[in-house]
Structures are given as C-alpha cells and as structure tokens.
Design a protein around this nucleic acid. Structure first.
Lengths: 262, 262
DNA sequence: CACGCCAACTCGTATAGACGAGTGGTCGAG
DNA sequence: CTCGACCACTCGTCTATACGAGTTGGCGTG
C-alpha cells in the first residue's frame, strides 16, 4: 500500500561491480545518514523495495542484514524494519570510585541514575563461593577459591551491564561482603573498614561482539558490541583485593578517563 | 572429497523451536569453543554441511553468517571458511603520554612496536588546515578552523588504528607542529616547547560497529567492532590545546588505565 | 458499543537451482 | 623440469517460491 514515494531512493547501477544488495544497503545507509529516515522511523518494507528495485526478496534481505550488522537498523517481526534509536548513554567517569562518592547509603549506580532522571534496577543478584578461573586466580595472586558477587544493572527496564566481583575468601568470608547487601558505600567501603585500604585500581578495556549468552542477558540488538572491562583493586600493600569483571552494552556507555600529564 | 568425519558435529533436533540455521551455528560455535577446530583452521565447506545436515545451501550460509557476525569465523572466496585467528593485541597503558616516554627521537608507536618485535608503519600522513566540525570546535573552545594531522598506524602490515589530531590554528600555525614530521617527542613535546605546558588529558571511549569507510581503511573482518577514543589535552591554564580522534580495530587493542583510589 | 475474528501486511525460515569468480592442484605440452 | 591449461572445489550473488508467525486494523456479530 505504500508504493515508496520516489525521490527517497535512487536506482541501481547495473554497470557497477558492486553487488546489488550492497548498492541497496548503500542507498538506505545514505538515506539514514542524511536524515531522510529518522530515529525509530520505519523503513520501506521488503516488499516495497522488491518492487522499487525490481530484485528478489532475498536480495533485499541481504541488504537489510548488512545494515543490521552495522547496528543501523533493527527488524521487528510483523511490524517492519526501523532505524535503530540511540539509547541515552551513561557516562562513567574515572573518579567514580573516589572515596567522596562512597559516603552515601545507596549504591553508586542507583544514586547516579536517580540524578539523571532514569529508573535504575539491579537484579540477578547472586553471591556464592566458587573455584577461581585461571584468569581470576592470576589477577588475585594465585587464589584457588573466591567469593563471587554477580549482578545485572538495568536503566528504565533495559539491561545495560552485567558484572561479577571476585574476592579472595580470606578477605571476604564471614564479612558483610558475603551478604547480598553489603551495606552503605558498597564492598569498597567494607574492604576499607576491614583494614584493606585501597590504593589504586587498574582497568583493562576490550571491545568485541557479544556471545549468545551476553545477547540474551543484555537483550542486545544485532550489531551492538560489548565493552569488556576488568577492574582490579589494589590495597596499600600492593595486594589485589578484588577483581570486577564487567560486560556492558556498548551502545549505552561512554567511558571517560582523566590522565595526568605527569 | 572431505565427507566431514562424523563425531565432529552432531545432528539437528527437528522437535526444537530453534531455527535450523541457528542449530547449525550453535554446533559449529561449540565445536570451535571446545577447540575441535583450531585458530586458522578450515571449517567444513558449505557443501559438506549441506550433505551432513541434509539442508539447503542457503541455510548453511545463514549459519555461517551468524558466526561471521560474532567475529568467530571469516570466509575466503575460493578457499573456505576459517576460524578467525586472534591477532596479537597492543596494550595501551594510561601512562603512555608521560613525559619520560617523550624523550626519544622516534614516535611512541614506533619505539613500542619495535620493542615488542613487530614491524610498525605509519602512512596516509596528511597535515592541513580545515574547518572544525561542531564537536571538535566545542571541545577546543569554539575555534572555527583547525590544523588537522591525520595518520594511519600499521603493525606487520595490518592497519590497526587511524587517528586525527586537531589543534587550534593560533597554536599550531607556522610551528613544527604543522610539519609532516614534528620532530622528536612528537607534537606534545613541541607544544611544551611553545609554552603550552600540559597538565592532563581526558579520554572518552566508545565502542561500536565500523562504518564502511572504517572497514576499508582498517581492513576489518566482519564482526570486528571499533574502539573510538577521543583524547583532549589540557594545558596548565586549563585550555584545550589538542583533540585527538582515534578509531582502533577492537581486536587489536586492550586499553589499560590506572586510577588512584583517592 | 464491545468484542472477536479475519484479512492484509510484516518479517522469519527454508528449499532448489543457476551462474560467477577466486584458488589450488593435476596433468600434459613443450 | 617448467609452464600453462584445465578442472574441481570453494564461496559470492541472485532468482523464484513456499509456508510460518507476529502485528494491526477493520469489519461484522452479538
């Protein structure tokens, strides 16, 4: 019924070396970039494009699958293909673990999200002792077993981050850190109370495509990478007292670091 | 000719809700994860899998396209589909701009790569004056025109990073900074000589899928995201004196930051 | 008016076939 | 032995068709 008003999209170049489905993807991409289709707006249906370009449906679908892989569009079964809206991003500043942010009763995530006017949630909380993976064991200095604290963070119902903290048992066992709710200021406040004065953190950042499990827990759209952040906390004696492994939906975050020019 | 030795892959579950091409992708993914196919090793050909599973070729190709999107495999025309080898990663430490690393004659990238035993290259060097984009102008404090220094970095022939430095004209024009080779210690050393003593840097990190142009310049495989890093350098008077916009192949980098626990 | 059903439209999955093009090995001519 | 032609195998592109399943809106019935 929507015969695809001419003008929005051009014609194919039969003399071009470029594959037809790539040419179609190029045209759609350009139209999106130029704002001819706005965020959240519905693109022409597969049938429309089949008719407009005079190609078979698989060719159109190939074009769409390119754009999906680029994270530009997403398809909804029974509804159409839409320009993917960019979710509001959460900025993580490098001073987010400064002591002055640790004085309040609520967790940093909740406080910060409330301030930004979003509705924060934390779920899949799980606290248990388990065998340390090789990587975690290495980072914590050859411990065999660890306390693992897992949780998922959501903003306005959308999962944005899944994190696991690992702590050596000799530090965490029998302390509030092993409780589901470790109390005001979080586990870093508890660590300091227990005499492990924090000296510095080390963060390692990678980006990659998500595993199927990560797609599921973070409800990721096609074409959205994850940021994998591994933070190690060191006390004043140089001992690694915690490793926090975080997987974030890359479209929801900007990380920000302040570096001295020394 | 290679009838796909049984045992490597199982059968489909016709009763499952999961689409056939997803089941095939799942089996291949698991076989790769378990090390049944090693890095760089060739997977069964499309024809092999068509025969093994008794499905049509498009179904097999759909399965492969999932794995490509995950960055697990890559196809080579005329050769086969291979498990994607993980390239050696370059670690970027947060002290990489410390003054003590600035004393040598060669650029930091070259020095560091040589030390790691790789063969570094820098190309597409371009230095010119241009109009500042809105974003760059904002970051540099409302300048209209800027000096832009573009270059691409390669390791062992593989492009890994594409970077552009932007500097206000009143700082850079007519100085060694506007020369293709700014001399020992790079532009940061020159800035300090010109009286702009560096105080700190601010880095913003995002991850996303690459644009087609980025795929081309970085020769990215399917399923490889980019890390987008924007660094702003501030002098001791609080003025932003440089913005460096960097796009990195995410499979080639680990960023590492050291944060004080303050 | 309210509700449910249905039809039309959407994307998802799968089949079967065709031709093109890049790669690598074999084999025969020189 | 060397080189080129050829062929088998590989993935790339494209067509045509079919049916399934989620969504939406309208229409008819109660």
């Amino acid at each position: 019924m929507s015969p695809l008003s001419s003008g929005l999209l051009g014609d194919l170049d039969p003399t071009s070396d470029r594959a037809v489905f790539r040419q179609i993807a190029d045209q759609l991409r350009e139209a999106i970039d130029r704002g001819r289709f706005r965020e959240g707006e519905k693109l022409p249906s597969e049938a429309d494009l089949v008719e407009h370009f005079g190609v078979s449906r698989m060719t159109v679908r190939n074009a769409f699958s390119i754009l999906q892989g680029e994270g530009l569009v997403h398809a909804e079964h029974g509804r159409g293909v839409f320009v993917r809206p960019r979710p509001p991003v959460r900025r993580l500043a490098s001073d987010r673990f400064a002591r002055r942010h640790r004085e309040q009763g609520k967790s940093a995530f909740i406080v910060e999200a409330d301030a930004a006017g979003s509705h924060p949630q934390v779920d899949s909380l799980e606290v248990k002792e388990e065998k340390a993976s090789h990587d975690i064991s290495t980072r914590l200095g050859s411990v065999r077993r660890v306390l693992a604290r897992r949780r998922r963070y959501l903003l306005d119902g959308k999962p944005v981050e899944f994190a696991t903290s690992y702590l050596p048992l000799d530090i965490a066992r029998g302390t509030p850190i092993a409780e589901p709710n470790p109390g005001p200021g979080g586990i870093y406040a508890r660590l300091e109370e227990l005499g492990h004065h924090l000296d510095h953190f080390e963060e390692e950042i990678r980006a990659r495509m998500p595993s199927p499990a990560e797609v599921k827990t973070l409800r990721l759209a096609a074409g959205v990478p994850v940021i994998h952040l591994v933070r190690t906390a060191f006390d004043t004696e140089g001992r690694a007292v915690e490793v926090c492994d975080t997987v974030m939906a890359a479209d929801a975050y900007v990380l920000s670091y302040q570096l001295p020019a020394t």
